[in-house]
């Protein structure tokens, strides 16, 4: 198995570390590759789009020619997980902030996103979040986090804060507005790995 982590910008090494810990826990092996250029995504069995600045990530995904490869990956039915900026990039539609910066969205999920749904950095927060695939709450870290304001019928909502959707699934794609890679709790990464193995 080979799992790719888009490494253009953001907290890439944290995702790699979380994957490594999760693999050790389940006693399985996989090659983890960080991806900055085109040609590697098609070789992967699963893909993570990490947190970072979506504006920057979106521009460079196009400039580097990776964007189209991610679309093909979805069509091939391979699991993709997007956290924070990843949730924005995988969406079909953005808010006026997204439009103003000519943000390119990959449009893989039938979702409409709000880029900074919970405000600026001073409003960033941690909270205990209930997720349907976990027995106990998960300490979720939201940093200038986005949210899903609207979703199509094929999208399964996994968690909400007030009216804002903060975790969702559509087919082989999983998106989270928070950062499971910033804590030592590997249960979200395990859930993603379950889809690959």
């Amino acid at each position: 198995m080979r799992i790719g982590v888009i490494a253009i910008q953001g907290d890439v090494s944290e995702h790699v570390d979380a994957l490594e810990r999760a693999l050790v826990e389940r006693g399985e092996e996989a090659e983890i590759i960080t991806i900055k250029h085109k040609g590697i995504v098609p070789e992967c069995d699963g893909l993570i789009l990490p947190g970072g600045e979506s504006t920057t990530l979106g521009k460079l995904l196009i400039r580097e020619g990776i964007a189209d490869e991610v679309l093909e990956m979805k069509d091939a039915g391979k699991p993709i997980m997007g956290t924070c900026a990843g949730l924005i990039l995988l969406a079909k539609e953005g808010d006026e902030q997204v439009a103003r910066t000519h943000q390119h969205l990959l449009g893989l999920m039938d979702t409409k996103v709000n880029r900074n749904a919970f405000g600026r950095q001073r409003d960033s927060f941690e909270t205990e979040l209930e997720l349907p695939f976990l027995d106990t709450p998960y300490n979720a870290v939201f940093i200038r986090a986005p949210g899903i304001v609207d979703s199509g019928k094929d999208v399964t909502v996994l968690a909400k804060i007030d009216s804002m959707i903060v975790a969702a699934e559509q087919g082989n794609i999983l998106v989270l507005a928070f950062h499971p890679e910033l804590t030592y709790d590997t249960r979200v990464h395990q859930y993603f790995l379950d889809k690959i193995f």
């Binding site: 910008q9 947190g51 970072g52 927060f125 205990e128």
Partner: peptide, 21 residues
Amino acid sequence: EKLRHGTELIKRGFAKMQKGG
């Protein structure tokens, strides 16, 4: 009140999102 703001994890986490930029 269940939302915790300004923790070390959140502050350092913000900086991590800037990496490679």
